[in-house]
Simulated assay, not measured.
Amino acid sequence: MNRVCYIVVLGPDGSGKTTIADRLAESLSKNYSVHRMNFAFGIMPSISRVLGRAPRQAVPEGKLDAGMVRPLRPAKAVLLGIWYGIDHVLGHITVRRAKPGEVIVFARSYHDFLYQRAYLKLPCVVPRLFLALGPKPDLVVTPLRDPVVINEGKPELTIDEITEQYDRITSRLSSYSYFSEIDANVGAEYAVKKIRERIGL
């Protein structure tokens, strides 16, 4: 492969996206140079840093309903959508600077603004605009798992919220030619194998 490959794994909390992204990166690193990233390209500083605020402490994983955050107020959601949207567009720099044959693997990405609970009051036109202007992934994949099983292992989201996030992902991302869904009920290794097959690596 003599081009840069850009892959995103996204989904509700507990769906296995981080595990799959980590194992995908590990698997690919045997043959390719891999750049493993989370959510943003990191070209823009975090808003907390710009405003001089201490970053919010992450809620410990496994805490009941920890992910059931209130949707942000529209103004704040728009501010974050634009701020990280600019970072996403500037991601062209990261992709262009990557070496031929390098693989960029994200767990979560700017696509999160289309489906996560915190951004329900954000007009979809905002993230869609920045996704159109930003670098195009070769593959955005969501691992499909039974919401009941997810909730039993990681109860951060209710079963209903997990189901609704999957529905939002399907309805809002299916229009993108690079979007795909993979059965992850079998396990992370199977999902990694299917991702490699779909991307041709």
Results as ranks from 00 to 15, higher is better:
I162Q: 00
K121C: 12
F106M: 01
G101A: 05
T170C: 13
L139I: 10
I93R: 07
V103W: 01
D146M: 02
Y84F: 14
V148C: 10
V95Y: 06
I82A: 06
E181C: 12
F113C: 08
W83I: 00
D87I: 00
Y176M: 08
G134R: 02
E181A: 10
L129V: 13
E152F: 08
V103C: 13
R168N: 07
L173R: 03
R97N: 13
D138Q: 02
L144Q: 12
V141A: 12
E181I: 11
D146S: 10
A132D: 10
A188M: 06
L157Q: 05
Y110F: 09
I82D: 09
R172P: 07
E156R: 06
A191Y: 08
R128F: 02
L131V: 04
K99A: 14
V192Q: 02
K121P: 06
P100Q: 09
V192S: 03
S175L: 13
G91V: 07
A188F: 02
P155D: 01
Y178H: 13
A118Q: 15
L120W: 12
L131P: 04
K154N: 12
I86E: 00
T142P: 05
G187T: 01
V95D: 08
P143E: 11
G85F: 01
N185A: 09
V103Y: 01
H92S: 08
H92V: 09
D87F: 00
V149A: 06
V105E: 11
L120T: 09
G187W: 09
K121A: 14
S174D: 12
G101R: 07
V140L: 07
F106E: 03
S109H: 12
W83L: 02
V95N: 07
T94I: 12
T170M: 14
Y176V: 08
F106P: 00
T158M: 02
C124F: 15
T163H: 11
I169E: 07
F106I: 05
L139Q: 11
D146F: 00
I93L: 14
I162C: 00
A118G: 03
R168W: 09
I86F: 03
L122T: 00
V95F: 02
Y166D: 04
A118Y: 14
Y115C: 10
P155S: 10
I150V: 14
D183K: 06
G134W: 03
N151G: 10
E161R: 00
P100M: 11
D160R: 11
L129S: 10
V95C: 03
I150G: 01
